[in-house]
C-alpha cells in the first residue's frame, strides 16, 4: 500500500509542475494551500531578521527553505509554529494562515497551534529519563490524552511511520538514549507525528547525522507526505532537490535581513530559475 502511495505522490510532483504552468491538478485536494504566509517579517530587538516573505504551503507536499547561512531560513520556519513566542525580544509581523485562521490571532492558543504544526529540530532531542514509548507519546500526554488505547495506537502508528517500530517494538521501555543518533532523530519525528499534526516543520533534521542516517530520514520524508504537510529547512541543496516539491530560496539583503528571492516548484528552481541569484546559489557559486 505504501509503495502505491509513493508512486501516486511521485506522479503528483510531476503534475504540480504542470499546474504552476496553468493546468488543473488531476487529484483533488493536492493544491490546497494549508499555510499561507503573507508579508511575514521577523525582528529581534527591533532588527529585522526576515522581511516581507509571502508564499503558500500546499497540502501533502514538501516545501523546502534554502539559502546561505544567515538568510533567515530557521527564523522564518520558527515563525510558523510561534516558537518565537518564547523569546522576549522577538516580534513577528504579517499574517500566517493555517487553513483559514491567523495563527497570530488573539484567539489562537500557541500550545494548541503547536499540536497542529509540529517541529523536528537540528539535533535529536529526545526527552531525558523517558523511555522510547514515553517519548513517542509525550506530546499526547502534554495535550491531556490519558486513554491507554489511544496512546498505544498513536505510539505504534507514529513509530511505524517513522520507520522505527520494527527495531524498537521489543524495547519500548528502554531509555531513548540507548538509540543511535539516527534512531533518536526518527524517534523525534515519531514524537512529532504522534499528535497527528497537519504540518510538520523540520529544521535541518539531518545536519547532525551521518550519510546513512541522513538517507534514511530523506526516504522517510518522502514517505510521510501523504500523512502530513512538510516544511523543511536545509542547507544541503541536493537534499532540497531530492525531497521537496516546492522550494523557497532566501538570501540576506543589504540590511542583513533575509528576503525571499524566489519561490516555485523545486525542479524549476534548480533548472530554470528566474532570478540570477537563485541560479548562482543552486549552482554552488556562493553560500
Amino acid at each position: 500500500m505504501t509503495e502505491q502511495l509513493i508512486s501516486t505522490t511521485a506522479e503528483v510532483i510531476e503534475d504540480d509542475v504542470d499546474l504552476r504552468q496553468g493546468t488543473i491538478a488531476p487529484r483533488s485536494g493536492t493544491q490546497t494551500p494549508v499555510m499561507r504566509l503573507d508579508d511575514v517579517s521577523v525582528a529581534f530587538g527591533g532588527r529585522l531578521a526576515v522581511k516581507n516573505v509571502s508564499f503558500d504551503v500546499y497540502a501533502h507536499e514538501v516545501t523546502s527553505l534554502i539559502g546561505p547561512s544567515g538568510s533567515g531560513k530557521t527564523t522564518l520556519l520558527r515563525a510558523l509554529n510561534r516558537m518565537h513566542d518564547t523569546v522576549r525580544s522577538a516580534e513577528v509581523f504579517g499574517t500566517v494562515l493555517l487553513g483559514d485562521t491567523d495563527i497570530y490571532a488573539r484567539s489562537m492558543d500557541p500550545t494548541l497551534l503547536r499540536t497542529r504544526v509540529g517541529m523536528v529540530f537540528q539535533r535529536p532531542n529526545p526527552f531525558p529519563g523517558m523511555s522510547i514509548y514515553e517519548n513517542a507519546v509525550a506530546g499526547l500526554r502534554f495535550n491531556g490524552v490519558r486513554k491507554k488505547a489511544l496512546l498505544d495506537e498513536a505510539a505504534e502508528s507514529s513509530l511505524v511511520a517513522a520507520a522505527l517500530w520494527d527495531s524498537v517494538r521489543d524495547r519500548l521501555k528502554n531509555h531513548a538514549s540507548s538509540l543511535s543518533g539516527g534512531e533518536q532523530q526518527r524517534l523525534c519525528i515519531a514524537r512529532a507525528l504522534a499528535v497527528e499534526p497537519e504540518v510538520l516543520l523540520m529544521d535541518e533534521p539531518t545536519s547532525a547525522l551521518d550519510p546513512m542516517a541522513t538517507l534514511r530520514i530523506e526516504e522517510l520524508i518522502t514517505e510521510l507526505k501523504d500523512r502530513v504537510t512538510i516544511v523543511i529547512v536545509t542547507h544541503n541543496m541536493q537534499q532540497a532537490r531530492r525531497v521537496s516539491d516546492q522550494c523557497a530560496f532566501l538570501l540576506m539583503d543589504d540590511d542583513r535581513a533575509g528576503k525571499l528571492i524566489e519561490f516555485g516548484p523545486t525542479e524549476k528552481l534548480f533548472t530554470d530559475a528566474k532570478d540570477p541569484r537563485t541560479l548562482d546559489y543552486v549552482n554552488g557559486l556562493f553560500g
Binding site: L112, T115, N143, A154, E196, P197
Partner: peptide, 12 residues
C-alpha cells in the same frame, strides 16, 4: 485520530 487528539487538546 487527529480530530480526536485535537478535541482532547482543546478541551484540556
Amino acid at each position: 485520530r487527529r480530530q480526536k487528539i485535537q478535541e482532547i487538546a482543546q478541551a484540556s
